[in-house]
Design a protein around this nucleic acid. Structure first.
Lengths: 216, 216
DNA sequence: ATTTTTATTGACCAGTTGGTCAGGAGGTAT
DNA sequence: ATACCTCCTGACCAACTGGTCAATAAAAAT
């Protein structure tokens, strides 16, 4: 594995050193955890990818699990932020369309984070169970209520809001989590800009039409 | 972990012993691989769950990887078989509807296998890459052609067939792979019969309507 | 009955892993 | 300058892992 280069090499202040090394380690950890899973990842691999001695990792992150937890939290934060695209929209087509676009964009830009999250949930969420039960549950309830409002207003068909949300998550995250499979079926090539656009449009079209949010 | 009991305890012929122990080990392995990932799974854990000494596992499966490969192949076979539900259908509503139902059923009955597959693909398909490039690629091409035929016949809207397939996989498998998350959001309870039916119907409705395969 | 093949298992091993630690280097404040 | 705090790292270790093996039991074939 090639090392991740440091952004620059001018003299560093202490604040910067900490911030920079943590970021460096987190980036390497995200990749290694995504590729090998928690159990398959080793601190040595992460250290090599970050270009630091293993002992240095333990200086910034006491345990492998602490490092892992940070990686999982980071992707969760990114998703929460993307969810804001859904608020402030008047119509389902607008709100859900923007949410789909935001999540597809994240799948493209943070495939490793998505995989780590998927892996964590698949294994029973041993380290982020509390997030599921608090933040995620609240978030889901709120958005389900928003969707229900749209249904009550006659702006979309009466579908179960939670299952609709699951469908959005499943479909968008699939492009990150199963990216390798998609790439293999795409003649071994990563999706091009145009293909990502087509994927996003297809997903939007099928779902928005499927819930009767498109006038046609 | 509690042991998986042997089906019966009458005197066994050699054929039966082999078949029974392999099945016993495979079932335990599927569960452990699903819960811990390949790297996190240990032969000792699998042995304990199967109720056999670890050395006995190595008698039937030479290496951990060989055992793992068998687990992955098994779920793949199950999915291929389910795909036949799609053939012989005259309309997209019929064919895709049956396929969705079959895949939802598998997600419910074989959640562990689905997770192992997902994990394998997420980590770059190190042991089943050839399957992706041969069987899966051929299968996908064939079904995409079938969908394209439906489009050409005017039986459904012109959506990209491959992205539609990805959407079917993503949505149905999500109920297995992210089952823990769904359960957590469902007040910690597994989905009931009625909830599984509602999930299946919601998925079918949104997708079939989304591709214009439902007359309404 | 005896030989041969298959199945079983406790004990063992070499390699790897997460994590520790003492000692030193390098900024920062006084 | 010097005392102090943060940062760095090679060497080390106890625990665990996949896998081996020789000895034994059980069944099948002769």
């Amino acid at each position: 594995m090639a090392e991740v280069p440091r952004p620059s090499s001018r003299p560093l202040k202490r604040n910067e050193i900490r911030a920079q090394n943590e970021a460096l380690i987190l980036r390497a950890a995200e990749k290694v955890f995504a590729e090998a899973g928690f159990g398959g990842a080793t601190m040595q691999l992460i250290a090599d990818l970050a270009g630091l001695p293993k002992a240095n990792l333990h200086y910034y992150f006491a345990t492998k699990e602490e490092l892992y937890r940070r990686v999982v939290q980071d992707i969760f934060e990114i998703w929460l932020q993307a969810a804001e695209a859904m608020d402030g929209a008047d119509t389902p087509a607008e709100g859900l369309g923007a949410y789909i676009e935001a999540k597809m964009d994240i799948s493209r830009r943070h495939p490793d984070g998505s995989k780590v999250w998927a892996s964590e949930v698949m294994h029973g969420a041993p380290v982020i169970q509390d997030y599921l039960e608090t933040t995620l549950r609240d978030w889901t309830r709120g958005r389900a209520a928003l969707i229900q409002r749209w249904i009550d207003e006659g702006q979309m068909a009466p579908v179960d809001p939670e299952h609709l949300l699951y469908m959005l998550w499943a479909t968008t995250q699939h492009y990150a989590d199963f990216g390798h499979q998609i790439e293999t079926l795409n003649a071994g090539q990563p999706l091009s800009d145009a293909q990502w656009r087509e994927a996003t449009e297809t997903v939007k079209q099928i779902i928005l039409r499927g819930i009767g949010a498109l006038r046609d």
